[in-house]
Simulated assay, not measured.
Amino acid sequence: MRAFACSGSIRRRHVPSAVTAEEGVEASRFFDRRYDGAVMVGLLFLLSEERQRQVLARIADILHPGGHLLFSAPEQSCQWTDSLTGQLSRSLGLAEYRRILNEIGCPLVECYRDEGGNHYCYARRSDYRS
């Protein structure tokens, strides 16, 4: 059985049957299962540098071998105030994300930029991990 987890507002509009939870990503109950893929759009950069590393490692741990990870973050290392939340946001930059992803066994496969200029990183969990 495939599982799908998303925020409540996205679920209600696009995937009414999806399981949701309104909780912090660091302690989410969705980490109690294994998945074929994970998507974080507009989330990772809202976390501190240390929490970004922790969440990426936790996601790599719950992905099946060959599982997919897609997340959004600016490709350059930078900080800004998020226009939707007012929170300090930070991108660790593509080089650091690549290093972290390699370290956690989920190497970067490709990067994308959409028509709005948003940057996405696509990584895939290795079949073998130490």
Rank of each mutant, 00 (worst) to 15 (best):
M1L: 11
M1W: 05
R2M: 05
R2K: 12
R2F: 15
A3R: 13
A3G: 13
A3C: 08
A3Y: 13
A5K: 12
C6E: 09
C6I: 06
C6P: 05
G8Y: 15
G8W: 09
S9C: 13
I10S: 10
I10L: 15
R11L: 13
R11V: 10
R11M: 09
R12G: 09
R12C: 04
R12N: 15
R13D: 13
R13H: 14
A21G: 15
E22L: 11
E22R: 06
E23F: 07
E23P: 03
E23V: 07
G24V: 07
G24K: 07
E26D: 07
A27G: 06
A27T: 15
S28C: 14
R29V: 12
R29Q: 15
D32V: 13
R33D: 08
R34M: 07
R34E: 14
Y35R: 02
D36M: 10
G37R: 07
G37T: 07
G37P: 00
V39Y: 15
V39D: 02
M40T: 01
G42D: 08
F45Q: 03
L46E: 02
L46D: 04
L46A: 05
L46Y: 00
L47N: 03
R51N: 14
R51Y: 06
R51M: 05
R53S: 06
R53N: 01
V55W: 03
V55N: 01
L56I: 07
L56F: 06
L56H: 01
A57P: 02
A57V: 04
R58A: 11
I59M: 08
A60L: 11
A60G: 12
H64D: 14
L69K: 09
S72H: 08
A73D: 04
A73Q: 05
S77V: 01
C78M: 11
C78L: 12
C78P: 02
C78S: 12
Q79F: 04
W80E: 04
W80K: 05
T81F: 07
T81M: 11
D82M: 00
D82I: 02
S83P: 08
L84K: 02
L84F: 11
G86V: 11
Q87M: 13
Q87E: 09
S89F: 01
R90F: 08
S91D: 01
L92Y: 05
G93C: 05
L94Y: 09
A95H: 00
A95W: 01
E96M: 09
Y97G: 00
R98S: 11
R98Q: 12
I100Y: 00
I100N: 07
I104N: 02
I104M: 09
G105M: 10
L108N: 05
E110R: 15
C111A: 05
C111D: 11
Y112C: 04
Y112E: 06
Y112K: 15
Y112A: 00
R113G: 02
R113C: 08
D114Q: 01
G116P: 00
G117K: 06
Y120T: 06
C121Q: 01
R124A: 06
R124W: 00
R124S: 00
R124E: 10
S126G: 12
Y128T: 14
Y128Q: 08
R129L: 12
R129T: 13
R129K: 08
S130R: 14
S130Q: 10
S130P: 09
